[in-house]
Design a protein around this nucleic acid. Structure first.
Lengths: 351, 351
DNA sequence: CTGAAAGCGCTAACAT
DNA sequence: ATGTTAGCGCTTTCAG
């Protein structure tokens, strides 16, 4: 045993009771000073708050939660978190939540586990909301959560069969925009490199793209399965696509990262010119797509708007828990760069 | 007011008391079943645990924290979170913490605020640890936190003047490894493109690099300030470097992202050959550095080991709160790719 | 507008 | 090994 003086002496946190004593008021008065609309004179409130700040008093959130049944916690649960897109979403959400007095708990689903195993760890904290990001969750668990009054909000995903809040990018619109861009600029054989097969993002991008192509007279869009949203997947898929007798001249990739893989396969391994021989477009508009070395035509994922919408939803549901379930879909916009051939350029090169 | 039937009826969580009644045991028996080493027969424990699982009972963590004074929460606070390196660190830490029963709270410092403003929001939850990542914090706040018994762990950073736990990469070793690699392969004029000036990472990488260069007879290493760890910074800095009369032939960049910027400036804007005219090396080994289009020589940032070390530290400090403050520095290793010229290649091209 | 008292759900002495 | 009791720090009736 070390002598007292050497021990780490954690200074004891000041409590409501002590603060009350110092100010000659009751403990309930201290409490009232901290809650928005409570019967307390502005004068006493100011007094309490000032002194509290001076001595560093803040109500213990655990005790608060216990009695108010409000945790002021929002859980964010992720699994495939590689895409830089999610990093921006996470910090954006977290910072907005901080501003309205909510605290973010973060859960990540390891490769050898399912979201269904991790979700209960979040639920136990009785979070006001659970934001599900980059993750697919079984509809059984969605119902479970609903039973306990936990609001689930899907971010950038939705669970088709289920009624739950969701904020997504208008993926179909993105697919259509890319289709129009390629067709408008004279491309004749369109192709799609898919990401995670059952992801709603993947499904809707394909749907928008292929349907628009079909509507404009190109019904034979080839589709190559990338399986996942990765560079390697894009690389391999592009190679496969080019083995076909009738090579595509316009490739839409389910994500920017996939597109980089395709780009490298096409240029590096196959020695093809992009966009001279074949055009490549992505989806997300992550920051590196703007770099000169990539200069990728893509569809801008409206992260900021999606974050704002999510927060708006949270505030609305907090005010009225009976808010009707809603799936918001937010349009982004196409960003045209140099990985796709333009009409003018096409004529200039004599094609 | 809507009729009862239409209201969202949150099923009430089951409590220890009810579980105890159902099993004809006391409420403390239920409690004991959930704590590791407590006087309870294995038989009753199993019985309680089984029934608990069946009815979905879990102790309320707020009530637990209130009485045990253990929050089981680890706060992670970040500010400049762009580098993909941190994404991997975050998920790695979070998943490891989950496994040992700790929950992650996530705080992000907005551009218009300082870490010192956000930290109190974390402290209020009495986290067992605060992991400070991608952030510089004032030594005043470090002391504040210490006073309340909150353990701060700096991840990938340290605050020079202060005594606090830190887990970093051996940045100096990285600098030396790159220096050796360049010198061994016949480079004559070395240069460094810096990142955030006062970041300990930046300082140590420069130190290791410049000192090793000097030790091997190259004392005139030029240094260009990138100011931040960004693509644009690297781009501009590389351009500046090449304006000099005596151009460098080996450039070490403070991060991979900076290196990409340098690469694009050199190849794209200046039309130079990399590595034929000039070699470029980075630091971090983020996944895209392995892509054929970049193939960047770099120093591998040992994230996994750093995460493991952090967890080890957490477990050690938890077991013995008087654990001596320690700054662990973990070696990574150089990864040689095609952005730097090798001796053989140098001879082959007749230089 | 303020104070006294009850109690949120649980754990930790203290008994038995 | 189990039950009983007293709080953890706070908010919220209920009086005044």
């Amino acid at each position: 045993m070390k002598p007292e003086s050497e021990m780490k002496q954690a200074k004891k946190r000041i409590l409501a009771k002590q603060l009350a004593n110092e100010l000659n008021v009751s403990i309930s008065t201290v409490s009232r000073a901290f809650s928005r609309d409570s019967a307390i004179s502005p004068k006493t409130r100011t007094m309490v708050l000032e002194r509290a700040k001076a001595v560093g008093y803040q109500p213990n959130p655990f005790a608060q939660s216990l009695i108010t049944r409000k945790s002021n916690i929002v859980a964010i649960i992720v699994s495939h978190f590689e895409n830089p897109f999610y990093t921006e979403a996470l910090t954006g959400l977290c910072e907005s939540l901080q501003q309205v007095g909510l605290t973010t708990m973060f859960f990540s689903v390891p490769r050898d586990q399912t979201p269904d195993e991790i979700l209960p760890q979040a639920i136990v904290y009785q979070p006001e909301f659970v934001i599900v990001m980059a993750t697919t969750i079984s509809s059984r668990v969605v119902e479970e959560a609903a039973k306990y009054g936990t609001n689930l909000i899907f971010f950038n995903r939705y669970v088709p069969g289920t009624l739950s809040f969701a904020v997504t990018c208008d993926n179909a619109d993105g697919g259509r925009a890319i289709a129009d861009h390629l067709i408008d600029n004279g491309h004749k054989r369109m192709a799609y490199i898919a990401g995670v097969k059952n992801a709603s993002t993947n499904i809707d991008r394909w749907k928008g793209f292929s349907e628009r192509c079909a509507a404009r007279g190109f019904s034979d869009v080839c589709r190559e399965e990338g399986q996942i949203f990765s560079y390697e997947a894009g690389y391999k898929a592009a190679l496969n696509l080019m083995k076909q007798r009738h090579r595509p001249d316009g490739i839409f990739c389910a994500s920017d990262i996939i597109a980089y893989g395709a780009l490298d396969a096409l240029r590096g391994e196959l020695g093809l010119g992009v966009p001279d021989d074949v055009s490549v477009a992505g989806f997300d508009n992550i920051s590196m797509s703007a770099w000169p070395s990539h200069s990728l035509t893509t569809y801008h994922h409206p992260i900021k708007e999606m974050v704002a919408k999510t927060l708006h939803l949270i505030e609305r549901i907090s005010a009225d828990p009976d808010t009707a379930v809603e799936a918001a879909s937010i349009k982004g916009q196409i960003v045209i760069r140099h990985s796709t051939r333009k009409i003018a350029q096409q004529e200039a090169t004599g094609r």
